[in-house]
Structures are given as C-alpha cells and as structure tokens.
Design a protein around this nucleic acid. Structure first.
Length: 527
RNA sequence: CGGGGCGUAGCGCAGUGGGUAGCGCGCAGCGUUCGGGACGCUGAGGUCGGAGGUUCAAAUCCUCUCGCCCCGACCA
C-alpha cells in the first residue's frame, strides 16, 4: 500500500503540472454538499441512487459529491460578472463518492475514488471549443508522460449531461468498456454511442400483407430460417419498461438494441427489459409480436425500419407471422431514432469501411456542458456589448486509481509490474547480497546515504534473504533500475546495474556512483 | 435488483454413504545453504460464516440467516 500511494502521488503530480500548464487553477471544493444544489440542477434525478445522501442532526439533507458541477457553478455565479474574467479554468484533485450499483475490478470501479476534475467557463462556444481543445491536449500529454497509449473515442455524455463528449481509452482485454473503431478513417466511439451505416436494400415494390403459419418459430433466427430469408428481412420486437412505462421497440432483425441510445431517445433514467409476464399483460404475444394493429402502447422504432421493404413481422397471434410489412403503410410509430448497437463487422458511418471492436478502460472523460447548468444556477456574465449571457461550461475528469490500474494492466509480465521511471514508487532498487560477508552491508549503507543525499529515489532491500528471493521481489515490485552489491562486485569496486526491462546488466564503479546513476536515469528519461 | 458461485489455520485449498479436522504456502526456533522464489529437523496456529433442528454422534443431513466473489443495468 505505501508503494501504491507513492505511485498515486506521482501520477497526481504529473496531472497537476499539466493542468497548471494548460492554465488551470487548483482549488478544493466541499465533499459535503447541500442537497438543494442537486435539486436546482435537476440532476438528482439522472444520478438517481448513485448519489449518496445523508441527513444531519437538524434533519437537513446533504449529498456526498459524486462530481462538482453544481458546487462550482454555484461558486462561480457568485464571483464572475464580466467577460473580462473569462475564460476560467478551475480544478481540484479530490475524493468522489458514488453509490455504484456494482463496484468491481479492484481499483477499476469503486464507490470512493480520487478524481481530478476541471471545469472550464467561457463566454461563448468558440471559447469552449478552445478550452476543450487545450484540455484534450493536456490529457494527451499526461498519458504520454505516464507511458500509457490511449485512444480518443466519441462518448455518450450520460448523467453528466451536455453535448460533445470524448473518452480516453486504454485498450486492454480486461477493460469494461467496448470501443467500436474504423481502422480505415479513424472513426472511434464508445459502443454505447457508436453508429454504423445501416445498409439499404434496393427499392422494391411494396407487396400486399400476407399471413403465414410459422409454428414453433419464435426467435428471429428461427423465423428467418423457416421462411428462407436473411434476418435483415425481418423486424424484431423488444419490450422495455422506461421509468415505469411499457415501451414497444421495433428494430430490424439483424440488429440489436443499444439501451443507452434508447434511454437517450426516450429521455428516461430507468430502463429495463420487460418480463414475459408483463408482455402478456400488455396484450402482446412474445415471439409473434408486431406493431401492426397495436393500440395504446408506446412504439419506438430504430431508423433501420425505413431501410428496406416487405419485412417479415409477427402477426400478434401465436404461430403466425406476416409477410410484406412496410412502414409507414402498415403501422405507425411514436418515435423513430437511431437506437441500434453498432457491431464489429458493420460498416463505418463515415467511410463505409469495416468497423472493429476492442475492449478498453476509460481513463479520462471530457464533456462540453454548454449552458445547461449555468442557466439553472444563474451563472451569467455581462458581455462587452452589455448583454447578460450564460457562461458556457465544460468539464474534464480523470480517475487516478483507475489510471494506476490501467498502467499496471498495460505494463506487466509474468514476473510482476514494470513501472516507467515517471511513476515508479522508487526509481532504484538497492539490493545487497550476502549481508554476512565483510564490507557488504556497510558499503550498501554508505551507498544508500549517498544516493539519498543526491536526491535519487531509492529503495533499500536490507533483508537477509537469498538472492533469488530478493531478485524476484525486485521484479515483482517493478522498480525500473536494480543495483546489486555483493562480494563479487566489491572485488572490482563496483555495483551491478540492471534495468527491469532488460536482460543484461552493467557494472558501475563505486567511485562517484550517484553521478553514474543519474547519468543512467537521465539517459533513460531522454528516450 | 436479476442470474451464478463460494464461506474449513494468516493465505490458497482438500475433506458429505454422519464417528473427535487435513494438505500446500506462509509464520517461529535451530542448523546447512544462498547471483534467480533452497533444504532438514522442531514448533505455534481452526468457535469448520452465524442461529436453530435431526442424531448416541454433524464441517458433513434439514430450515433460516449473514458475508464475500463473479456475470448483467451504472461510470472517472
């Protein structure tokens, strides 16, 4: 734990340096926040149960900050009055609390985590674009300094709200997010946001509806096989409950529903699949349902229903389907939107290339908030023409613990972690062998003193253990540079230096050792 | 909240046709070893998650309960 904390502090400092360089000013906001602020923004609804709340002795309700748009906007609205005070970039590095439905993955997803959150305040969209750009650049710098390759992807803005949003993803098998990307044109998006080009069928003459018996064929695959058509020639029905309302969703048979897109289209916060019992209660037949002739139920369609003609749909009675269903000739819908899940192998919406899928860890997320929150808090300023305008906001977050977990995930081997010099808990591992032999321990102690005096970040392994044990621990901890001192190296008045990443070692003279090591470290950093 | 799994020594696990609880690692002592996780001997350590029940007898069978992990809806 102490070692992990050292790493976290180093990560924190790198982030702080880059934020400062980008013009950010650090401050510290309260964790304990009046619940009214969340009512004022309306976001206590979208955050739902994730927002921790508590009551104080006066029965006053407080929230534990899951993020700080409310608090900081409230603050800024009290102090900023003129366009001359903009742009303003404020940030903090602080513990966030969220009552996550399911914490997991060690540090990847926890209810209490340290986050750097920066908020930008600009006079207009152009200013926001500039702040957004400079934050993206700062984030790229941070990941580069951490030695962590990331991919920028388009993202859904979720509970935070707002318009444009991008995530920084570390691609790894163990990631909990899915990224859809096109290696042809560079399009990349979180799977919950990703679009795909829905290929259009050739124009066909709409044929009259025709009922056909399809006994035992309930799933789309079974129906398509039974009739002998591809699944994209069918429409499938899926049923949800959105904030307690039953919703009939219709989508082309070869596509899947993207629940995030559906939630956004419906503007609802709770969304779940309906049970078979609830489907029956709504007067529908699971497996043989279609919107044709259905009344009194909200129908939402994916825009793929306009991409073809003469679809196969359910007949709303067991054992039968209908051929040649056409929208809008045969049925109407309440809402039509893109609610389809983009999948690996689909066509890229930009260039029609093939889309691929990868898993990733989200290590940073930036949003263009716009004026949504500032309007609710009356955070406005007087422009140079004398009119009052709402401040245009952006927010930018990086989870530190998750970043640490992502680094370890990306940089380890069968022996343990491999830290880069920039974040390693210590840069040098001082490892004397045969402590009982003359001169070894005293020399090691002298070296330790000397290196510390020179400001070298060194960990001293003074345990009386066998070489194997000590070497393996050094590898496990992943300290970049290992110094071995033993009777053997003492014979030539030297120590052995070995990089964690390399197989071969080199000898360094004891004379001016600190200088020699600084040279080695400097050379490595320059790489 | 829905689905699956697990609770036995510090850690990882075995042990169910009921019969007084075992292995590996780790830990303590002594000795030999020691430039890639050495070995021998000795030793410490367990209310078998909890409560109730069946039985002469329960880690094992029955009922209830608590906790943890994994997979889904959430996100830095």
């Amino acid at each position: 734990m102490p070692l992990g904390w050292r790493v976290l502090k180093k990560i924190e400092n790198i982030i702080r340096e880059e934020m400062d360089k980008a013009g950010g000013q650090e401050l510290m906001l309260p964790v304990l926040q009046p619940f009214e602020l969340w009512q004022q923004s309306g976001r206590y609804v979208s955050f739902g149960k994730s927002l921790f709340t508590l009551t104080d002795r006066k029965e006053y309700t407080l929230a534990l900050g899951p993020t700080h748009e409310e608090v900081i906007t409230d603050l800024v609205h009290r102090y900023v009055q003129s366009y001359r005070e903009l742009p303003l970039l404020l940030y903090q590095i602080q513990t966030k609390l969220r009552d996550e439905p399911r914490p997991r993955g060690g540090l990847l997803r926890v209810r209490e985590f340290i986050m750097k959150d920066l908020y930008s305040f600009d006079a207009d969209e152009t200013g926001l674009d500039k702040s957004y750009q400079s934050m993206c650049q700062a984030y790229s710098n941070i990941y580069a300094r951490l030695g962590l390759p990331t991919m920028i992807v388009e993202a859904d803005s979720g509970a935070i709200g707002g318009k444009d949003s991008h995530e920084f993803m570390v691609i790894t098998e163990t990631g909990e997010d899915e990224v859809i990307y096109c290696s042809n044109c560079g399009y990349a998006a979180n799977a919950e946001k990703a679009q795909s080009a829905k290929t259009r069928g050739d124009a066909e003459t709409p044929l009259p509806l025709e009922e056909i018996a399809t006994p035992e064929a309930k799933t789309i695959q079974e129906v398509a096989d039974f009739i002998g058509v591809p699944t994209k020639q069918t429409l499938k029905a899926v049923f949800y409950f959105a904030d307690g309302e039953f919703v009939f969703v219709i989508i082309r048979g070869d596509l899947e529903v993207n629940e995030t897109k559906l939630r956004n289209a419906l503007k609802c916060s709770e969304l779940r699949l309906a049970t078979e019992g609830e489907v029956n209660e709504a007067g529908l037949v699971a497996g043989f349902a279609s919107p044709i002739g259905v009344k009194g139920v909200k129908v939402v369609a994916d825009d793929s229903i306009t991409s073809g003609f003469n679809f196969i749909v359910g007949a709303n009675k067991p054992g039968y389907h209908l051929k040649n269903a056409n929208y809008p000739r045969d049925f109407q819908v309440d809402l039509i939107a893109d609610i389809a899940l983009a999948q690996s192998g689909d066509s890229c919406p930009k260039c029609r290339g093939k889309l691929s899928l990868a898993r990733g860890i989200e290590v940073g997320h930036v949003f263009k908030l716009g004026t949504f929150i500032s309007e609710r808090f009356g955070a406005s300023f007087l422009d140079n023409d004398g009119t009052s305008r709402p401040i245009v906001m952006g927010c930018y977050g990086i989870g530190l613990g998750r970043l640490l977990a992502a680094i370890v995930e990306r940089s380890h081997d069968d022996k343990g972690i491999i830290w880069s010099l920039s974040v390693a808990p210590y840069q040098v591992y001082l490892c004397p062998l045969h402590l009982d032999k003359p001169a070894v321990l005293p020399t090691a102690e002298k070296i330790y003193q000397e290196l510390q005096k020179e400001g070298i970040d060194v960990l001293f392994d003074d345990r009386d253990d066998s070489p194997g044990v000590k070497f393996n621990d050094a590898d496990l901890l992943g300290i970049p540079l290992r110094l071995t001192l033993s009777p053997r190296t003492l014979q030539s008045q030297s120590v052995e230096a070995k990089w964690r990443t390399e197989k071969e070692a080199q000898l360094l003279p004891l004379e001016n050792l600190a200088a020699g090591i600084n040279r080695l470290l400097g050379g490595k950093l320059a790489q």
